[in-house]
Design a protein around this nucleic acid. Structure first.
Length: 612
RNA sequence: CGGGACGUGGCUCAGCCUGGUAGAGCACAGCGUUCGGGACGCUGGGGUCGGAGGUUCAAAUCCUCUCGUCCCGACCA
């Protein structure tokens, strides 16, 4: 019989004849050792009927139920054979696209010496997330949460000339971040698998070109993974310059909020999303001076609004923050939310913490709930919406009193006005004035320009054409490889289990024989299995001595895109039943056409796997 | 780190309030019957009730401490 397509021996199989007689147990072990057959009964796939108590998020639950992962400790997981297969699929796509974009794969150590981190001064800065320990000689070490230091060290030692540039190195590595709160299984583990790439360029223009190449590569990667995602502008922190994008998989369980315009292509992480300044200019001050109003035990915006019969938009919250440069006050309109990332960036500080009850009393002279900007002896930063208000209501810095008719320019000494709040769906798009929606997403990729931060700290330089020493321009590009596995499940599932995109499914076809003891069924399944494997289709043959219902349930749970059932009835007509996991469509296909039928569908579904 | 919940065979949980025999379902092993959507019968193995201390004649149950896990908020792929 002619084999369709190239005979791919993906699992290093032996003779074609060895596909046969798969149910003869004495042979089976040999074949398994050879890696020829993927028999359900031989693989470690400990599926669970019930939801594990420890799992809440869909992907976490289903990964456990499908026997893909098991927890070893908080935020630390074993990958079982099926889970690993999915992970490998992601890795393969990532490798292919990184290579295609001109990056080179390396493998850097997981354990790193403290010296490098001290050199970049992140040993002090990184905090408790960095897992530190000592080796037997008492030398400080850490388990790498990221590899800027290591890669920069490598490159400063090996790269000295502009002739060696540009350079883009990546790795797929286990990382460890001692997260405050690991959660949602693979979405936020402490140990996780990440692809991280670092680019080195002679100048800024080169760095930006590289950034764009990575941007394109990332789009290809996530498309190929079959994910529905959105690229958003991201906060790059104090060092990042103007370029930073995050790749978000849209999912209700996402931990990130993003604002997206329904008319243009503006999209940004909520931390970053700009608020368009309102048009027009503020009206003249109202009244002659602020007016004291008793507000006994009335503290929150809601309470004050109700008590004084005004709207939250008439009120201004005065938030007292502690920073590494001392305390500050931030003014936000009552119906708005402060955006601490924006505040941090404006102030150029790394620590920003709401002051405690006692500190607030020290600094304002009143309990929390009565702080106000009038005569407050702190630097005062006002959101642009506040600066436009007239006759606002604020705390009086006196217990049980508020002030009415406060006018920013007249009564409050404002240090600076800026965009300090988060956008809402009521705000217009800052680019086109269109309508914004707020969505949830899982961050699966982040690219940003590092500039000279690390090359300066670690003195990574090269000689340019004039023989002048120059710092290397760096970029950094991460992908949460293990997180993608979870994200794909968050996006693809139903009540029966996982619905994997073709490109990530551990197998493309689940082959289920009904009534194994029927020789005709057995014969048919054997040859189908052989034909499909030979056609390059990955098949999981459920050879277990289980009732059909059990096999159907497991097949659905595992999320294999196609289920092929061979039963006596259809077989009499020379047919097999093919069910598509995603659509639940069932068709009876003549056996002879099966590989052709499936092959086409799989190719279509896995456009991702084909490099165009 | 703050707030909440929970730790009882491999899994899901009951028992705890009101102290006295450790239970169910699933899973597992054997036998038999079944066999197109998580079958059934019989038999069997498996738990120092997270750990330590205390109260008590007696602790899964009450008290204290401790460890671990999960959920909600501040970090990040």
């Amino acid at each position: 019989m002619a084999r369709p397509g190239p005979s791919r021996r993906r699992w290093g199989c032996g003779e074609e004849g060895s596909y046969r007689k798969i149910f003869i147990s004495s042979d089976v072990c040999d074949k398994i050792t050879d890696g020829v057959l993927m028999l359900f009964s031989r693989l470690l796939i400990p599926t669970l009927k019930e939801n594990p108590a420890e799992a809440e998020a869909v992907s976490h639950r289903l990964l456990l139920r499908a026997g893909m992962i098991r927890k070893l400790a908080s935020g630390i997981y074993n990958y079982l054979p099926l889970g690993l297969r999915v992970l490998r699929k992601v890795e393969r796509i990532v490798r292919e696209e990184m290579d295609r974009a001109g990056a080179q794969e390396v493998l850097l150590p997981a354990v790193q010496p403290a010296e490098l981190w001290q050199e970049s001064s992140r040993w002090q800065v990184y905090g408790k997330e960095l897992l530190r320990f000592k080796d037997r000689h008492g030398r400080d070490c850490c388990f790498g949460p990221t590899h800027e230091e290591v890669i920069t060290d490598l490159v400063r030692k090996e790269v000295h000339s502009y002739r060696q540039l540009p350079l883009n190195l990546y790795q797929i590595q286990v990382k460890f971040r001692d997260e405050i709160r690991p959660r949602f299984g693979l979405i936020r583990g402490r140990e996780f698998i990440m692809k991280d790439a670092y680019s080195f360029d002679a100048d800024e223009a080169g760095a930006e070109a590289c950034y764009r190449r990575m941007y394109d590569a990332y789009n290809r990667i996530f498309s190929r993974c079959g994910l529905s995602f959105k690229v958003v502008e991201a906060d790059s922190g104090p060092i990042g310059g103007s370029f930073s994008h995050e790749f978000m998989v849209l999912a209700d369980t996402g931990e990130d909020l993003l604002a997206s315009c329904t008319s243009c292509d503006y999209a940004a992480n909520l931390e970053k999303a700009e608020v368009a300044p309102a048009p027009g200019s503020p009206g003249p001050p109202v009244g002659d001076a602020p007016e004291l109003a008793p507000t006994p035990n009335v503290r929150t915006v809601g309470e004050v609004a109700a008590f004084l019969k005004v709207t939250p938009a008439d009120i201004v919250k005065t938030l007292i923050y502690e920073t590494d440069e001392g305390p500050v006050a931030v003014l936000i309109r009552g119906d708005h939310d402060v955006n601490e990332v924006k505040v941090k960036n404006l102030l150029g500080v790394t620590d920003l913490i709401l002051a405690g009850l006692i500190r607030v009393q020290e600094l304002t002279g009143a309990e929390v709930g009565f702080a106000g900007p009038v005569k407050l002896k702190l630097p005062i930063y006002a959101d642009q919406a506040v600066a436009r208000m007239t006759a606002m209501v604020t705390g009086a810095n006196r217990d049980n009193y508020h002030l009415k008719q406060v006018n920013p320019g007249r009564d409050v000494k404002i240090t600076a006005v800026a965009d300090l709040r988060s956008v809402t769906e009521q705000d217009p798009c800052p680019r086109c004035g269109g309508v914004l929606t707020i969505l949830r997403g899982i961050e699966v990729g982040h690219i940003f320009k590092l500039g000279l931060k690390y090359s300066k700290a670690l003195k990574a330089t090269y000689l340019d054409q004039e023989g002048k020493e120059q710092y290397l321009y760096m970029g950094c590009y991460g992908i949460g490889v293990s997180r993608i596995v979870a994200a794909a499940i968050e996006q693809g599932h139903d009540a029966n289990g996982i619905i994997f995109p073709m490109a990530l499914a551990p197998f493309q076809v689940g082959l289920i024989p009904i009534a194994l003891n029927d020789p005709a069924v057995r014969e048919c399944v054997e040859s189908l299995h052989a034909d499909l494997e030979a056609a390059g289709v990955e098949v999981l043959l459920d050879d277990r001595d289980e009732r059909p219902g059990v096999k159907f349930k497991d097949c659905d749970l595992l999320g294999l895109p196609f289920r092929v059932v061979v039963g006596a009835k259809a077989l009499d007509k020379g047919q097999a039943e093919v069910k598509e996991r995603g659509s639940n469509e069932t068709k009876f296909i003549p056996l002879k056409e099966l590989w052709d039928y499936l092959g086409k569908l799989i190719q279509e579904g896995a456009r991702g796997n084909i490099i165009s």
